[in-house]
Write a protein that binds this DNA or RNA. Structure first.
Lengths: 144, 144
DNA sequence: TCTCATATCGGAATCATTCCAGTTTGGAAA
DNA sequence: TTTCCAAACTGGAATGATTCCGATATGAGA
C-alpha cells in the first residue's frame, strides 16, 4: 500500500514547481487526516477552513484538480459528464478511452472471486465495477 | 456475456408490473441499438425522440432510473454526489457500502495484469479502477 | 367502456463543478 | 531586503447533469 504522508505531498509540491501556500498546506492536512474517509471537495473545504481561515471553494476545486494532474492524489470520479448505462449485466472490465471517451468491454477469463472478499473482510459484494482507464487502439494510431 | 435483447427487456417490464408505453419502447430500442456505445441519458433522449415523437428528458431520466432499479440495465455512475479523492495511489479494490456510503480499501494479493489487456485488445491502461458495491460488516449487523 | 394507479410532461430547482475577471502573494533574482 | 511577476486565490456568476413537482394523459385490468 502506497499512501502519501504530509511530508511526501509537500515534497512533491516542490518537485512539481508548485508554490507552497497556506491554502495548499491546509488542503494537504485535510487530505491526509481524512484519508480513510475518501473525502470529497466539500469535506476538504470545511476542514481546510478550520486550519487556514481564508480558503475559497474555488481554490479547493482548483487545488484538487492540480494535485490530481500532478499525480499527488487520485481523483476517483473521472466521468463528470453524465451517467452512462449498459445493457450488459455480466462482470467485465470497461476500457474507457481518455481521449475519445469510447467505452469498450473487455471480458476477463477469470473474474475476481467475491467469495474471497467476503471471507477476508466480511463485506458482501452485490455489484462489481472494474474500470481501466487509458487509450484505445484507434486513438493510439491517430496523431494528436 | 449476458446482454439483454429488446424482447428480454420488454418481457422484464411485464414481469416487474411496469406498463408498456411508446416512450419506454423507444428508450429500450435506443438502449439496445446503442449498446456498444454505453449511451448516456442525452443520447438516449435524442434517439428515443426519433422513434417516438413525444418524449421528455424527465421521462428518460425517470425511466433509466426505473430500469436500473428493476435490474434491466446497470447504471455505471453510481456516485452522483461529488468527486472523491484518495491519497492511496496503489491498485486496490474500493469496497463501497450501499447503505452508509463508507468506502473501505481492500488490497488484492494478485492484481489483474494490464499487460494482458494490452496484448489482447491493444488498449493501453494508464489508470485502473475497481469497485465492488455491496454491504459492509457493520451494516450487515445493524438492523435496518 | 370506465377507472385510476401509473406515466409523462415541462419547467423550475438543485447541486457539484468550472469559469472569469480582479486582487493577492510566494519566492526567485537583484 | 526589496522588487517583481507568474502563479494562486477569491467570490460570484455560469454551466450542465439530474431531480423535483404539480398538472395532465394513458395503459390495462375490471
Amino acid at each position: 500500500m502506497r499512501t502519501n504522508t504530509k511530508e511526501d505531498l509537500i515534497g512533491q509540491l516542490k518537485e512539481n514547481g508548485l508554490k507552497i501556500t497556506p491554502q495548499r498546506l491546509a488542503i494537504i492536512d485535510a487530505l491526509v487526516e481524512n484519508r480513510y474517509e475518501h473525502p470529497g471537495a466539500t469535506l476538504i473545504f470545511n476542514e481546510a477552513r478550520k486550519k487556514a481561515g481564508r480558503v475559497s471553494l474555488s481554490t479547493v476545486y482548483a487545488t484538487l484538480k492540480e494535485f490530481s494532474e500532478s499525480g499527488l492524489i487520485r481523483q476517483m470520479e473521472f466521468d463528470r459528464l453524465e451517467n452512462r448505462y449498459d445493457v450488459d449485466l455480466s462482470d467485465h472490465v470497461n476500457l474507457i478511452c481518455k481521449r475519445c471517451g469510447k467505452v469498450v468491454d473487455y471480458h476477463i477469463p477469470a473474474p475476481l472471486e467475491p467469495k474471497n472478499i467476503v471471507r477476508k473482510s466480511g463485506f458482501v459484494v452485490t455489484d462489481t465495477r472494474i474500470e481501466f482507464h487509458g487509450y484505445c487502439r484507434d486513438c493510439l494510431k491517430r496523431p494528436d
